[in-house]
């Protein structure tokens, strides 16, 4: 059974698309991440043009993060002041990102940029997560007393602001920088950015984990909505048919995934996620290094 994707102007097996959504939804249910960083590369591997994969994925991440954000809002897990700051800077980042995307596309380098960015990001984050979770697995019994958060060089920066919900009194510069970068990545490589935002909020800004999760979902909802709008209005690359099919699979997969997550320990989950991240990174790296099947590619020009 095939579905004709009206924006991609080609047809794809409907079961593969829903199955892909289901598999990624399952993983996102297990690990509590959006899964955009897995979905976009897989869509590109399937043969969906990178431009359409990125644009459509933004709208799918929006759909899958909005209910999580609502739930955290009800439980008051969102640091509104931090969220607002990240959203404002993220909107700037994601809007600029859409224009950078268009520029790279005209140079014929968007595909390469997406791949290299994935390799760099997934490689570093996957490795760090893997080491951290291995250490945690070894030392689960040993519990050392920790400060609420470590003080680092970032606490010396000016323009300090109080974030009562996160129990922080820090400079606004690091959140703004993080917001711009994550917003830009959301537009350029088609991810929600949770896998960058979360570690940045927890380790860099020193926010409590549960508030970081709620606030990042809150931020991702707004940023992906912005990316969706600009990808649709500037690049015309949002295929709502594709997004809906993926989403349909994803919501079902996520339900099974969240049940599965109850069976595993936190450190085990993080180690597994790290392995998946490293695997995607290596396959992207391979696609950059291996001799391509065809050296040539064509696109319509004006």
């Amino acid at each position: 059974m095939y579905a004709y994707l009206p924006i991609a102007e080609n047809s794809f097996n409907i079961l593969i698309l829903i199955g892909l959504g289901g598999a990624i939804g399952f993983l996102s249910g297990v690990f509590g991440v959006g899964g955009g960083f897995l979905m976009t590369p897989l869509l590109i591997f399937l043969g969906i043009p990178p431009t359409i994969a990125v644009g459509s994925e933004a709208s799918q991440i929006l759909a899958s993060s909005v209910s999580g954000a609502m739930a955290h809002y009800k439980r008051r897990n969102i640091d509104m002041r931090m969220g607002g700051l990240l959203i404002l800077s993220g909107l700037v980042g994601s809007t600029v990102g859409v224009y950078i995307f268009k520029w790279l596309q005209s140079l014929g380098q968007i595909d390469l940029t997406i791949r290299i960015t994935y390799v760099a990001l997934l490689g570093s984050i996957g490795t760090a997560m893997f080491i951290e979770s291995l250490n945690a697995l070894r030392k689960t019994r040993v519990r050392s007393r920790q400060k609420k958060h470590k003080h680092n060089f970032l606490h010396g920066l000016p323009f300090k602001m109080r974030f009562p919900q996160s129990h922080l009194y820090i400079s606004v510069v690091p959140p703004i920088v993080v917001g711009v970068i994550v917003g830009g990545l959301s537009s350029i490589i088609g991810v929600g950015g949770g896998f960058i935002l979360l570690p940045a909020m927890i380790y860099l800004l020193g926010m409590p984990t549960i508030v970081a999760i709620g606030t990042s979902l809150f931020q991702i909802t707004f940023i992906t909505a912005n990316s969706t709008f600009f990808h649709a209005s500037i690049n015309q690359t949002v295929d709502i048919m594709l997004a809906t099919l993926l989403l349909f699979g994803a919501v079902i997969g996520a339900q099974f995934g969240s049940k599965m997550s109850l069976l595993l320990r936190g450190e085990q989950l993080r180690a597994l996620l790290a392995l998946i991240v490293i695997f995607v990174c290596l396959s992207m790296l391979y696609s950059l290094l291996a001799t391509p099947l065809s050296l040539y590619s064509i696109e319509m020009a004006s």
Binding site: L62, A63, M70, A232, I234, Q236, V238, V251
Partner: peptide, 29 residues
């Protein structure tokens, strides 16, 4: 219709895509 909307009314299409995504996310939940 989707193609026509996306190319003739890109801004409206973008807003509709956001509404559809938010609505389907909430519906699924």
């Amino acid at each position: 219709e989707i193609y026509r909307a996306a190319h003739q009314y890109p801004k409206l299409y973008g807003i509709s895509a956001i509404i559809i995504s938010v609505f389907s996310g909430l519906l699924a939940n």
